[in-house]
Simulated scan of single mutants.
Amino acid sequence: MTAPLDTPRIASSLQIKWATEEWEKSAAMALRRRVFCEEQQVFEQDDRDEIDVLAIPLVAVALVQDIADGVVGAVRIHEDEARDGTWWGSRLAVEKRYRRFGGVGVGAGLIRLAVSSAHALGCRRFLANVQSQNAPLFQRLHWRSLGEFECHGRLHHQMEADLRYYPPCETPTIGFFTRARGAA
């Protein structure tokens, strides 16, 4: 039996990759708006800023029967123009119904590709300003807190990835695929 058309499908697998298609980039921006403006109300209308001009967007694309069905996660990375070899990740957003995708963390996959692809581009230090409630996730993924501060009215940790746990990814436009536990 198939789900009614108005019932959203849950994918059986994901492709986590750099956003290379315009629809992926547009969908990533729409997801960020839903998460940071509507759900969290961190920003009023839009979360775009000057970093978006420099940043490389990454996406988690839901695959239904191995066909792209939409962007369910996004993050952006960029090199710090003032500090050679330092890269930043920011605006990590995951569609609510995919935050615990079949035992596989969509956010963790995006973080992995973000750091690994920057590492392949010469990153010697990878940083992120992470909302405090998400700091434990990053710590489990081999990040350390450099201190807590307030940003946009919320507590954040500036965090640094341990690059030893993130081997360089030479094919970020393809990225990697992951299946939900129990998926065929």
Score class of each variant (00 low, 15 high):
Val59Trp: 03
Gly182Met: 15
Ala74His: 07
Ala55Asp: 07
Gly70His: 08
Pro57Phe: 06
Pro57Lys: 04
Thr20Leu: 10
Ala55Val: 10
His78Ile: 03
Ala74Glu: 02
Ala180Trp: 07
Gln158Arg: 13
Gln133Arg: 12
Glu79Val: 06
Thr171Gly: 00
Pro4Cys: 04
Ala120Leu: 05
Arg125Asp: 04
Ser26Arg: 13
Cys151Pro: 01
Asp52Phe: 05
Ile51Lys: 15
Ala55Leu: 12
Ser90Val: 00
Leu14Cys: 06
Arg179Val: 10
Asp52His: 11
Gln15Cys: 14
Glu81Cys: 00
Gly103Leu: 07
Gln40Val: 08
Ile56Asp: 04
Ala118His: 02
Gly182Phe: 15
Glu24Trp: 08
Asp49Gln: 05
Arg33Tyr: 05
Arg154Tyr: 07
Glu148Cys: 02
Trp143Ser: 03
Ala161Gln: 02
Val115Glu: 06
His152Leu: 01
Ala27Gln: 10
Ala74Gly: 11
Gly70Arg: 05
Ser90Phe: 01
Ser26Tyr: 05
Thr2Val: 09
Arg48Phe: 02
Met159His: 08
Thr173Pro: 01
Val94His: 01
Gln133Thr: 09
Glu21Gln: 14
Ala114Gly: 15
Arg91Cys: 09
Gly182Tyr: 15
Ser117Pro: 08
Ser145Asn: 05
Leu5Ser: 10
Val71Gly: 02
Ile67Asp: 11
Glu38Ala: 13
Gly102Asp: 05
Leu14Thr: 01
Val61Ser: 05
Val35Lys: 02
Gly102Glu: 06
